[in-house]
Design a binder for these strands. Structure first.
Ligand code: FES
Ligand code: FES
Lengths: 149, 149
DNA sequence: ATATTAAAAGACCAAAAGGTCTTTTAATAT
DNA sequence: ATATTAAAAGACCTTTTGGTCTTTTAATAT
């Protein structure tokens, strides 16, 4: 669905928000462990997210990542677009030059509603809404135990 | 949506089928030009498809690519899976360990129907059905003229 | 036979994605 | 002030994806 960087970014952001709801400010080591992502890579990605302005951080003792409470909710789409670019889920399913209604490909009629649904999903869901959902009970959002076979 | 190799493969297969309906047997040079893909890369991909048993080819004069008429229609999904592997559109939208109903993530309820729709689309549409649709009139399946700006 | 044609095989290359690690900078606590 | 802590910066590496090109093999036509 998404590439690794986007996946780790979304999971990391949601994890930070979950902790923030508990009044905590997690660091890279904790985040990487909890979202089950490579430590240094997670660090790099979180730093990129800070530079992009999606969240804040402080260095030193007691430091970590946190959200500016004055900012509005961050839709998944905003993060996805910032990392993967606008082409994600905006183009033709068949790889033609940008999909449109006037010159639809054979798959357009079937694909367009799917693409619209994906767009809706990532627009309506935010880092904050997912974190709130998570807080409501289930503990399987970020890291799932591998089923024993 | 798909990676380049899958895109070129699908376009190439559909193009071969379209030509076959006209009694023709296109070669790499023609295919690459018509589907607007890199010549040598197209060649490599078409060869891989032959080796995978999706279509046939003959060398030498009058040679080219064609389908075994005795075989049944080739669903897009079969091609996609052969190239990109089974993980495509079978996993969790959030990157957890394989999506399932028992331990759904926060997005599962919204994502599952989308994933199912994609699966249905690539299962119900085949190289042959797309080629037949194409033959019905519109000429924009494989290569679209860039709109003048 | 042999010249021609076109796919098959495979070596090779470039860019992007994914990932690791060290050094530097900025907080905080003592 | 200085030791400690943790993010920032950035060099570096590996794998995958995407792509190019040459050589070989197998058809066909003369
Ligand atoms: S034109 Fe191909 S999906 Fe819209
Ligand atoms: S468990 Fe995440 S989409 Fe199904």
């Amino acid at each position: 669905m998404f590439n690794k960087e986007t996946e780790y970014a979304l999971r990391g952001l949601v994890y930070v928000q979950i902790q923030q709801l508990k009044g905590l400010k997690p660091g890279i080591i904790e985040i990487a462990k909890e979202i089950d992502a490579p430590l240094f890579y997670t660090g790099k990605i979180m730093q990129r997210l800070v530079k992009m302005g999606f969240l804040l951080s402080t260095k030193g003792k007691g430091g970590g990542f946190y959200f500016d409470l004055n900012k509005e909710d961050l839709p998944l789409k905003t993060v996805i677009q910032a990392i993967e670019g606008g082409k994600a889920y905006s183009g033709c399913g068949f790889g033609l030059n940008s999909c449109n209604e006037d010159q639809p490909c054979s798959l357009h009629e079937q694909y367009a509603p799917i693409r619209d649904a994906i767009n809706k999903l990532v627009s309506l869901n935010s880092v904050q809404s997912l974190a709130r959902d998570y807080n409501d009970g289930d503990d399987i959002l970020l890291k799932r135990e591998k089923t024993i076979d």
